[in-house]
Amino acid sequence: MRHARLELWSRGTSFAHRRHPAAKILVTLVFLIAISSLHPSQARAAIFYFVVLTALASAAKLPVPRVLLAAAVVLPFACVFALMSFFAGAPEKGIAIMVRSWLSALTTVLLMATTAQPDLLAGLEALRVPRFLVQVMQFLYRYLLVLIEEAGAMRAAAASRAGKASTLEFRRASAAAGVLFARSWGRANAIHQAMTARGFTGHIPRFRVLRITAADVWFVFGLVGPVLAVRLVLP
């Protein structure tokens, strides 16, 4: 699983891992804004961002080649658009799209690789994302793997029982989705009962309280300054 690897990386203890999640989200957004507005002629700025992001990855003691590869997930889709720009007579726009989307994905991968999921959600909440939405995201993430595994097991069971009877396949798949839904629904009710029994009133307590430190402030200004300066000054 791709995100199992991200979760493995995000439990580190480097300088980047220890920063407040809200600070990291802010820096990520500034990077993304600067990258998304890159013009095809601004190759130097693009190279600068690539160097900074790679340096951050190695400072966070992440395996740099594998981080770069994880961000390359977006490239096949970008290639399609690059080809279309090529046929529409604007190849430089296609290349710009590939560079921008890869650098953006690299930024997002770095955020995820240095921030554990509960911390990320706490950061979102600190940035005033509605708490209701954040809690739904928390449950979604928690049961994602559980239900995906259940769907996989059901698929294996169905294939071993019925083989490849193609006339029945559509009905079988919709019935599988129905069964999966009924199980999920039942599971959700059981979860809610268990939570109510433990005194859930709409707020989930945290083990560790996150505080903004001086290092977080330095981290934000130390990165936002150069990123914006390069974007504004370099032609």
Partner: peptide
């Protein structure tokens, strides 16, 4: 919890 599980 219901909405989270429905998302999953």
């Amino acid at each position: 919890p219901l909405m989270g599980v429905m998302g999953a």
